[in-house]
Each structure stands twice: as structure tokens, then as C-alpha cells.
Write a protein that binds this DNA or RNA. Structure first.
Lengths: 332, 332
DNA sequence: CTGTTAGCGCGTTCAC
DNA sequence: GTGAACGCGCTAACAG
């Protein structure tokens, strides 16, 4: 491997001249610049990352803690990672992956200066990692919005506003018995930070509109959802609209509607919070409040880079605003 | 940030003693070992990764080139990454992610010594990156088995043997008109390295068994597969068994069978090549030849580490042997 | 068993 | 505009 010294010798100049020619931090005469470049090409020179990192105190690497638990949607994780990866390459950073479950390792990666900053995905309420992350000397951004973030920067979708928007849209389209469908709250396991927020937003919107909130928790399998449709929609006719915050339920719900003759949007309107692709991939095209995965990823990265540039802005959270997209499951 | 020099002073020993105490490359008396450890704790010392990398010529980082194209299954990619991540952590390596599409960057990461070795996923036939990868001075392992691998190490599932196994199992269970169902060969786009191999295995097995091979190419949407079932299975009764190498088709196929009254496994038996989770996630439980994603990932990592340890074994490929799991779509 | 010393390759002062 | 010198924090000979 050729070093800068080799280039200097080969080009007949001094070491620092090569350095300045490469960094551009000082004007270099076109002539020597030329000879240096040709030496670089000839010797196949590439700056050594670790030497550069040692001298400059920056690695051009960003850490990303990715969850590996079975119960988080691999597609969503992949889209987060992918958006962050693309954005970081644009800023000339590479990504260092660590398993979120291995928090010891996540810490080490920061402590040893393997990365310049860190993004942590899949935060949960009362996440035990928060104090430890807050104590780190380098920038950290959380994806998720825990109630107690320990002063850490957070980026997430604004689930509260999103839920309110969904309810208002259903209300504006004539529905008055608007239920919320969601997964059973896991009291034992840690709960994602968004679970509480969407419920709260739903309840607030109902209160604001003067209608009674009803949160229905149903497991995400076909049988449970079939039973829900039969009992609560067909027999009791309890709801004329559903706000669904439960992505895996959407497809089953659509089939249950079809099987049991529930007309949508005539009998029951539906608005979901979901990424666009799951809204349109099932048996029907679901009107939704968009969950902007890629935007969250890009925003998290942008925030991290701002923090790296300098402690300009005080620590804060960014919650992405909701947008509603009417599709086949709501009336005009 | 405390440095090793600080520790040495604090513990009243020499710099190298600290280094050796940490690396364990030299016996240290329990007494001084103790004082060093206490100094480390007291000063919150952590070795600096870049300095260590510069001096030791190894980064403890492995590169992984991940594809981001829409047409590769995010789940599969995620499972590859996840298995490699877990395995590398076990060997005390971290993973550096690069976008496979950005091959320029992939090269740079190797050339600048940001990683010790590289895994490249999602190889295609005549992959243009192969010559460039083969010229790299550090170990490279491909996931995939291109016809011309340029002497690079490859790891993949043995699709040829897998297809043969599938056909034999169907034949052993009484089927004689065994068709192969797969995605249309994209003549324009690059084709994954496994497409040809499973077709070849299917054809070879048929020949071996003295039956006529028929490869049917159907797009993976519900309509196309419905039409296929109606025309070729219900009307023509062309096949009494299908070997399916087309994961996204399985669920649609199951629903089409149900809708059109094709009895499985009575009328038509089915064996797929697929990961277990997709085999059992659809409307039926499909007998399958397992596509062992995690094993491929772990094997690729193991191979990389062997290459890093020393050029013991000559360059070679590893193809994982198929296993058949009977489920609901084959007879006893 | 422990100290001393010279690099690893690059960044950044200084004087020339 | 250019060259020499030192430091980043750690590793690994080479002594003792």
C-alpha cells in the first residue's frame, strides 16, 4: 500500500505539499498539483482511513443500532436503514451497524470512538438504555419519542396529531361512531413509544368532536379479526368508522369485510396509520395517514449531522407532521 | 478522554505494560494487573479504535454491501444482514454497511482500509463488479454463485441439488407430470445467479427420472396465477405436481387453488424452494426445500474469518445442501 | 515479568 | 508556495 510519503518522493515534493494538495486547504501550483496527481494514479494511492481518523479525530462513520427482535417488522427496519444509508453516503459517511440488543457493544462503539455519532432505533417506553446513552460524549439521536428521553434528541412521526387527523377526517365524512382498532397493549413486554401517543390522539380528537371514544384491542390474526367484524360490526353495528393503528391487521380486515358483506366505505369507513405500501398492498386501497419511514430516517440523519457540525441548536425533538391520503375506504 | 499514557502514569507502570495487560499478549503479574485495572476504572479509559487500527493494521470491521433495489425482498436482505451481524459480533467484529449500488464507494471502503474484509450480497450473472472485487487485496466473499466468479469465494444455497431434490420427492410421491413454476426470465435486467441453477436442476432431475420437463413462467400477481391455475390445472390438467421456485407466488397460488377447487395434495402436489417462514405463512403450509438464509449468512462470515486468519484453504465456493420438509402440500 | 523505543500514516503548525 | 517537525494513541519489537 502506497503512503503519502511514497507519493511525495515519487512526485519530488514534500509530504505536506501532498497533504495540502489533497485537502485543498491551501493553494498549490498547477504544475506540482499535476505531478502529485500522476504519482497518486501511478502508485494507486488511497489515504488510510485509520490514520486519517487518528489525526483528525473523526471517523466518517455513524453508528446505527438496529433491533433484531422477531416482533418488529423487518420491512420497516430495512427501510429505516436504507434511507439512513443513502442519506449518509450523500454526506460522505458510512454506517456502522450494531445489534440494538447488544447495548454493551453499542456503548463500546461510541466509547472507543469507532463512530462519530449514533442513531438508535426502536425505542420503547422507559427504555433502560436511555440513561446510558444520555451520558455519552458524542451526539445521539433516538428514533422514537419516549416520554422520558433524558434530554436526548428524538425523531419520530407525530402519532398524536396523526391520530387526531384520522379521526377528524372520518368525522368530516359523516361518521359519528368512530372506533379505534389496535394491538393489545402488552403489559408485560416493553411497549413501543408510539402506542400511547396514537391512543391519546384518538381520545383527544373524539373528545374535541363530542363523540365517545372506544378503543378495541384485537390480536392481528385472521380469526380474531374475523370475529371482531362479525360481532361488533355485523351484529352489533357498533361502529360506522374505524381508525386502525395496526398494520398487520389491514389485510385480514379487508378479507373479513368482503367475506361478511360489510360495505366499505358505505357501511364503515376506514382510515389507517401506515406506510403507503402496506396501505395499497392488501385486498383494498386503504385511506391512510402516512407513516413516513424514509423521512424519519433522513431527518434523524440530518439532525445528527447538525449536532456534529456544532452545538448550535439546543437539544430538541422533531415530530413529523401527518398527512392524510383519501383512498378507497373513505367516502368523498 | 483518558489515554493509555494516563493509565500508565496513574498506575505507576510503563506504557507497554498497560498495552500488554489489555491485549493479554504477555503475562502480567496479578499485582500490577490489578493496579492497571483500577486506574482504567478510575479514569474511565477506553482504547481508541482508530489508533489501535493504525498500529495493528486491522479495524475489526467487516464490510457488507447490501442491495437497495426495490425488487429484492427486504425481508431476505434483513435476515442476511441480521445473521451476519450476530455472527460477527460473536467474533468481536462490527459491520460496516455500504450500498451495493454505490460500487465506487464499496471499493473505496476497501482501498482506504476502513474494513478488513468484505461480503457482497445479491450477485447477478455477469456481475460487472466481479473483476474489480477480484483485484482487491483484502478477502472478499460473494453471496451468490455466478458462473464466472473470477476466482472469488462464493457462498450460496445449492439450488441445483435443491431443485433435483424437490422433483425427486414429488416423483417418489407418485407424480409424473411435474411442472416447474417460476418468474419470467428477465432477459433485459441482470438475473440472479440462482435462476439458472434451479431450472437446470429441475431439468436434470426430470431427465434422470424419464419424465418431460416443463418450465412455466408466470408473473407473481394474483390474476396471472389465477389464470394459470384455471387454464393449465383445471382445464388442461396438464400437471399433477408443481415445483415452485417463486416465493411471492405461493400465497396467490394457494388462494387460487381454494377458489377453483383444485385439491392439494390430492390433485396436485406442490414443493417449493423457499424460506420456512414464507412456506408456512400463507393460506396453506407448503412442503418445501428450505432456503437457509441465516446459514448462508453465517457461512459467509465464517469463510471470511478463515481467509483473514491466513490463506490456509485455496479459494473455493460453498454450496449449502438442501433439505426437504414435507408439509400439507404433498402426500405421505 | 517490566521498560524503552521506534514506528503505523496522516494532519497541522511553524519557519523557509 | 514549499519543506521539516511534531503529535494523534496504540502496537510490538528489542532490551533488561
Amino acid at each position: 500500500m502506497a503512503t503519502m510519503t511514497d507519493i511525495a518522493r515519487e512526485a519530488g515534493v514534500s509530504l505536506s505539499t501532498v497533504s495540502y494538495a489533497l485537502s485543498g486547504k491551501r493553494p498549490i501550483s498547477p504544475a506540482t498539483r499535476e505531478r502529485i496527481q500522476s504519482a497518486i494514479d501511478r502508485l494507486q494511492y488511497h489515504p488510510t482511513a485509520s490514520a486519517r481518523a487518528l489525526a483528525s479525530q473523526r471517523t466518517s462513520l455513524l453508528g446505527v443500532a438496529v433491533p433484531q427482535r422477531e416482533d418488529v417488522d423487518a420491512h420497516v427496519i430495512m427501510e429505516f436503514v436504507s434511507s439512513i444509508l443513502t442519506a449518509s453516503h450523500e454526506q460522505d459517511y458510512d454506517l456502522l451497524l450494531v445489534a440494538a440488543e447488544d447495548h454493551e457493544r453499542t456503548r463500546r462503539v461510541m466509547d472507543e470512538g469507532k463512530v462519530d455519532a449514533l442513531i438508535v432505533m426502536d425505542l420503547v417506553e422507559d427504555d433502560p438504555r436511555i440513561p446510558s446513552l444520555a451520558a455519552l460524549p458524542r451526539p445521539v439521536v433516538l428514533i422514537g419519542y419516549p416520554q422520558e428521553s433524558g434530554g436526548l434528541a428524538c425523531v419520530d412521526f407525530d402519532f398524536l396529531s396523526g391520530a387526531m387527523l384520522a379521526v377528524r377526517e372520518l368525522h368530516a365524512r359523516g361518521s359519528r361512531r368512530i372506533g379505534m382498532l389496535t394491538s393489545p397493549a402488552a403489559t408485560h413486554r416493553p411497549s413501543p413509544t408510539y402506542a400511547r401517543r396514537s391512543r391519546l390522539g384518538y381520545t383527544m380528537a373524539c373528545t374535541e368532536l363530542g363523540i365517545a371514544p372506544t378503543i378495541v384491542e384485537v390480536p392481528s390474526d385472521a380469526e380474531s379479526l374475523g370475529a371482531f367484524v362479525r360481532e361488533q360490526l355485523v351484529q352489533e353495528q357498533r361502529f360506522d368508522a374505524l381508525f386502525v393503528h395496526q398494520e398487520p391487521a389491514l389485510a385480514h380486515l379487508g378479507r373479513a369485510f368482503a367475506a361478511q358483506g360489510v360495505a366499505c366505505p358505505e357501511d364503515v369507513q376506514i382510515v389507517a396509520i401506515s406506510p403507503e405500501d402496506v396501505a395499497v398492498s392488501g385486498p383494498w386501497d386503504v385511506s391512510n395517514v402516512e407513516l413516513p419511514i424514509s423521512s424519519i430516517g433522513r431527518t434523524a440523519l440530518a439532525m445528527l449531522l447538525e449536532m456534529l457540525s456544532g452545538p448550535a441548536a439546543p437539544p430538541h425533538s422533531r415530530l413529523l407532521s401527518p398527512t392524510f391520503t383519501p383512498r378507497g375506504t373513505t367516502r368523498a
